[in-house]
Simulated scan of single mutants.
Amino acid sequence: MSTSTAPIAIVPALPVSRGLTSGLVMALGSALAFSSSGPLVKPLFEAGWSLTSVLAVRMGVAGLVLAPALVRVLIRQRGFVRRHGVLLVGFALTGVMGCQLFYFSAMQRMPVAVALLIQYIAPVLVVVWVWLRTRRRPSNLVIGGSAVAMAGLVLVIDLAGARFDALGTLFALGAAVCAAAYFVISERTGDDLPPLALAAGGLLIGAAVTILLGVTGIIPFAAPAVSVVVAGMEVPWFVPLLWVATASTAVGYAFGVMAVPRIGSRLASFVGLGEVLFALGFAWLLLGETPAPIQFLGGALVLLGVVAVRMDADSAGTPQGPAAVVPAP
């Protein structure tokens, strides 16, 4: 009897490990992809491009890149839009468009460092959400890891002489809530709602809503044909924008939504903090903005916090993979 039951205990552990490893790699790849957008978009803003126009092109092109995944699902599944339309719109308005509009609106009213710091409390919001949903108190590893990661984030983001603005703070908190929603909604993907279909639908809906806001004049829309300087080279406007739309946004969302079902929304949100560290590296390489020594220390603390949350996932035996993770409705 012992020989017949042994394979049952051993075999399922292998796909779980592979799913966890692949999920972590995808989450890091998503953070790396997203982090390259800031240094490339900044010259466009300085050259006269409006936020609405950048976001419309960024989301629209990325959505078209991932559109085949959505088309396949629409052909294969009757009633797909009826079953998942609300979730697609929610993902578009929060995880795709909302966090970007709120963040950039906050950035216009307060220092970038403060807006970033508030937005990146999203992992803590995910921890609170999981706590409320499961009614299980987070472990000491998660609480300690959260505190260490947030302390590291404060060091990474230079707050010297920072000022707070009431409306800007509300915008940044809105960005944090939307970022948390991105991870929570992504965890609900599976065979019936493939991750890439969610990403494509969210990006295309987000682009459509953004264009509507620009056309109606609710948000300014400007897209001049200019040249910008990137990494010391003068290039046409479409060069950095195409990179941001494809390599940054399409790849970032594709890897991100595929990673969350494998490793869970909580761990994925903490791995997402790597975007801040990668962004520092890109700003260093492309814009010549050298990080201060204290920022390197902060980066180490962020990584330490992520490792602590990762260790909790191991000790808790968290099931991984789209078939195993079934979030509460």
Rank of each mutant, 00 (worst) to 15 (best):
A176K: 05
G305I: 06
I8W: 11
I118H: 05
C178V: 13
P195R: 10
A180S: 14
P7R: 01
R135D: 08
L66W: 06
F80P: 01
L198C: 09
T210E: 03
G98V: 03
R58W: 00
F238W: 15
A162Q: 04
L159V: 13
G201S: 13
A31G: 13
S50C: 08
A328T: 14
A279Y: 01
W49I: 06
G274W: 02
S139F: 07
W284K: 07
L273C: 11
T52C: 12
S315M: 13
A225V: 15
W243Q: 10
G38W: 02
L212R: 08
V307R: 08
G161W: 05
D191M: 06
L159I: 12
S186P: 07
A149G: 03
S248W: 01
F80C: 08
T169L: 10
L40R: 00
A106R: 04
A113S: 15
E234H: 00
I143V: 15
L32H: 01
G256H: 13
F80N: 03
V73S: 02
A67I: 01
A225R: 15
V239W: 11
E275G: 01
G321C: 12
A254Q: 03
V142M: 04
F255G: 04
P240L: 11
T52A: 15
A162Y: 04
V215T: 14
I294F: 03
T21C: 13
G305R: 00
G90F: 08
A313K: 07
A250N: 09
T246D: 00
A62G: 13
V57W: 06
E275W: 03
F183A: 15
A147D: 05
L285I: 13
A149S: 12
V276Y: 03
T52S: 14
A147C: 07
R163H: 09
P329M: 06
Q108E: 11
D314W: 09
G152L: 10
V228S: 02
V177F: 14
G85A: 02
R262W: 00
E234T: 12
Y182R: 11
A247D: 01
T94S: 15
V142R: 07
I157W: 00
V226C: 12
A245S: 15
R136H: 09
H84R: 10
L213S: 01
G85S: 06
V86S: 13
L24A: 09
R78Q: 12
G214Q: 00
Q320T: 15
P261Q: 11
V127G: 08
